[in-house]
Amino acid sequence: MLLDNHGRKINYLRLAVTDRCNLRCFYCMPEDGLNWLSRKELMTYEEMLQVCTLLVKMGIEKIRITGGEPFVRKDIMQLLTALLKLDGLKELSITTNGVLTAPHVADLKKIGVRSVNLSLDTLDANRFFTITRRDEFANVMETMEELLKHDIEVKINTVVMAGKNTQDIIPLVGLTKDLPVSVRFIEEMPFNGDGHSHSGIVWDYVRIFDEIRQTFPEIQKVPDPQYSTSYNYQVPGHKGSIGIIAAYSRTFCGTCNRIRITPQGTLKNCLYDDGVLNIKDLMRSGMDNAELETTLREAFNNRQKDGWQAEQKRLENPNFHESMATIGG
C-alpha cells in the first residue's frame, strides 16, 4: 500500500500519453494550439509500461489513460493491451473526446476496458463547434452510441462555463432518463495554456446543483464511492446518474488518492502543482527500478495537503502556464 505524508492512500494513476489533441476547446488551449512536444520529449510506450509496472507493484490499482486526446497517438491499442496484462492492476479506463474513438470500441471491449469518460460540453452541434472550434459533434455522438452498444460504462464529462453552455445542463441531465450514463458537471479550471488570469468561477458546484434542482426538484443524493471527486445524485426513475465535480473549489483534497504523469514524464502529486520530478529523465539517465522506487516514495512523502497549497507554490513562477492538454486532466 502506498501512503503519502498525510496518511492518504495512493492507488490511482492518471497517465497522459500525448499533449496533442484534434479539438481546440477554448478553455483548454489557444485557437492555434500549443507548442507540441517533439517525439523525443514524449515518454515512449516502453517507458510508460516500465513505470506503470513499477507503480502497480508499489500499490497503484487503477490507471486512467488521458491526453491531449489518447487516440491521436499511433498504436495506442498496443499500450492499452500491455497495461491490462499487469498483475495487480484492477482497472484501466480512458478519457477521450470521442472524435476518433468509435472504430476502436469493439477492441476496447475485447481487451477488457470497462469504463470510458467521454468529454462532451454540449448537446448542440453549433455550440459544440463554438466551444471546440471543430465540426466533430457527429463523431462524438457515434462514439457514445458504440460504447453503450458494447456495454462499456460511459461517464460524460461536461465543463460548465458561464455564457457558453449553461443552457446545456438540463438537456444533459435529461440524457440520464433513458440512458445508463453518468453525466458529470465539472467546475472550470485555470489551465488554458495562454496565461489568462483566473480569479474564480461563476458556476461553482453549489450553483450547478441549484440549477438542476429547479427543473428536477425530486433529485436525490446517492452515496459517493470511496475517493470520489464528485457529489453524486440521481433523479428517481432515471436509468443514469449525475455527478458534480468541485474541481476548482477543491472540496475533495482530503481523500485524494491520485497522482499524474504528463506526456513528457513529469510526476504531479496534484493537478495544481507544477511537477515534482521528471520520471522520463531519471529513467534515461540510467536510474534502475530500485532507485526509481525510492525516489518516487520520497516524492509521495512530500505531497501538498491540498490543491490550494499546491497552486500557491506554482504561482510563484509567473511564467508558468499550463494547458489541460499537457497535464492530462
Rank of each mutant, 00 (worst) to 15 (best):
K85I: 01
I65T: 10
V51G: 02
T53V: 13
C52P: 05
T81N: 14
R64T: 11
L83N: 11
T44W: 00
E46T: 15
L86C: 06
F71P: 09
K74H: 12
V51S: 05
K85M: 06
T53W: 02
T44I: 07
T66F: 01
T44G: 12
A82T: 13
P70F: 02
L49I: 08
I60W: 00
M58T: 00
F71M: 09
K57I: 03
M48Q: 09
T53E: 14
L86W: 01
E47S: 08
E69L: 02
K57T: 12
K62I: 14
M48W: 05
C52H: 01
K57P: 12
R64F: 01
I76G: 12
T44M: 03
V72F: 08
L79P: 14
K85C: 08
G67A: 01
L55W: 07
T53Y: 06
M77C: 00
P70C: 04
D75S: 15
M58A: 06
L86K: 12
I60Y: 01
L84S: 11
T44Q: 00
T53M: 08
T44P: 02
G59T: 01
I65N: 02
G68T: 04
T53S: 15
M58K: 03
L79T: 13
R73C: 04
E61D: 12
I63V: 13
K85S: 11
L86M: 04
Y45W: 04
L80T: 00
L80P: 14
L84W: 02
G68E: 03
L86Q: 13
T44F: 03
Y45V: 09
K57L: 06
L55E: 06
K74C: 04
G68A: 01
K85F: 01
E69C: 01
K62V: 15
V72W: 05
I76V: 14
G59Q: 07
L49K: 14
I63D: 02
L55Q: 09
R73T: 00
M48S: 11
F71G: 07
Q78G: 13
L49R: 14
R64H: 00
K85D: 12
K85E: 13
L54W: 09
F71S: 07
Q78E: 14
E47H: 11
L80N: 09
V72E: 01
E61H: 10
E46I: 10
M48K: 02
R73S: 05
K62L: 09
V72A: 10
K62N: 09
C52A: 13
L55F: 12
C52L: 05
T44A: 07
D75R: 15
Q78N: 15
L55T: 01
F71D: 08
G68S: 06
R64M: 08
E47V: 08
E61Q: 14
A82Y: 07
K62A: 11
L86N: 08
I76S: 09
I63N: 05
E69V: 00
L84R: 14
V56R: 06
L80G: 10
V56E: 04
L86R: 09
I76H: 08
R64S: 10
I60F: 04
L49D: 12
E46G: 13
L79Y: 13
